[in-house]
Simulated assay, not measured.
Amino acid sequence: MLDVLAADLFPGNYVIAPSDGIDAPRGTEGGRAEKIAAALHDRWDDCTLFVIHADGAGDPTEARKRQVDPGIEAARALREERAIVAAACIPVREIEAWMLPDQEVFRALGAAEVLCPKDPERELDPKLTLRRLLEHGGLRRRPEDLYRFFGEKIRLEALGALPAFCTFRDELTAALRDLAATL
């Protein structure tokens, strides 16, 4: 998605380095805010854009307010000399809901016909729904082993039907604009 957004925002004038998943260093004490701040601080010199994931647990606005925003503020307090460019990635419940809207991805995995939910963000347990779809499709793979595959193959048009994903996409777009302004 970064490539698609950057191409629209900066035609022919951008470079996207490989993405790395990061976590707080082992032994980091405190709650989620302190762990986010420690992770950002630990990779500060290596990254120009941070995407911070939190599960929404049914209320993504509250998850952002309780987890992500305090983490960004704590990181800013550690490194006031540079702006933090970040986007929050907060699905309504769990990120697995964003793996559910595109039947084509299941076909690409070699699954038999599966019926994807009409509104994946309303699924109370997206992980269970994903497991069930994989099983019904004849696939014996753990969802945890498929994140990268789904992330690379899912069509952005399918994700565009999910309001929480659209919020993330819009926030990521704003973050890219902010990043361009700091360079």
Rank of each mutant, 00 (worst) to 15 (best):
Arg169Ile: 09
Arg76Met: 12
Leu183Thr: 14
Leu162Val: 15
Phe106Glu: 05
Ile154Arg: 02
Asp23Leu: 01
Glu94Gln: 14
Leu40Tyr: 00
Arg32Asn: 05
Ala38His: 02
Arg79Gln: 09
Leu124Ser: 14
Arg82Gln: 14
Arg32Thr: 07
Asn13Glu: 12
Leu162His: 03
Pro18Trp: 00
Val4Phe: 01
Ala86Lys: 02
Gly21Gln: 07
Glu29Asp: 05
Glu62Phe: 03
Ala111Cys: 15
Leu5Val: 06
Thr167His: 07
Ala174Lys: 12
Val51Trp: 00
Glu80Cys: 04
Asp145Gln: 11
Ile95His: 02
Glu135Met: 03
Pro101Leu: 08
His53Gly: 10
Arg148Lys: 10
Pro25Lys: 02
Met99Ser: 09
Ala57Gln: 11
Cys47His: 12
Glu171Ser: 13
Ala112His: 11
Thr48Ala: 09
Leu2Ala: 10
Phe106Asp: 03
Phe10Glu: 02
Arg43Cys: 10
Gly56Gln: 05
Ala181Phe: 01
Arg26Glu: 09
Ile90Lys: 01
Ile72Val: 15
Val85Arg: 07
Glu73Arg: 14
Val68Gly: 02
Phe150Trp: 13
Ala175Val: 08
Arg82His: 10
Lys153Arg: 14
Phe149Trp: 05
Pro70Phe: 02
His136Ala: 04
Asp59Cys: 11
Arg26Trp: 00
Arg122Tyr: 00
Pro143Thr: 10
Ala24Asn: 04
Glu121Gln: 13
Asp23Tyr: 00
Gly31Thr: 06
Thr173Lys: 13
Lys153His: 11
Ala86Glu: 07
Val92Ser: 03
Leu156Phe: 08
Val51Gly: 01
Gly58Trp: 01
Glu94His: 15
Ala164Ser: 15
Glu121Pro: 11
Thr48Gln: 14
Phe168His: 08
Ala111Asn: 11
Glu96Asn: 09
Gly56Arg: 04
Glu34Gln: 12
His41Cys: 05
Arg155Thr: 08
Asp119Met: 06
Cys47Asn: 05
Ala38Thr: 08
Ala37His: 07
Ala158Cys: 08
Leu78His: 13
Thr28Lys: 00
Asp46Ala: 15
Ala57Ser: 12
Pro163Phe: 11
Phe150Val: 13
Arg107Thr: 11
Arg141Val: 05
Ala180Val: 10
Arg66Pro: 05
Gly12Phe: 02
Asp45Trp: 02
Gly12Leu: 05
Ala77Leu: 09
Ala164Gly: 06
Thr173Arg: 12
Arg177Gly: 06
Leu179Gly: 06
Asp170Gly: 10
Ala74Gly: 07
Asp46His: 14
Asp102Gln: 04
Asp59Met: 03
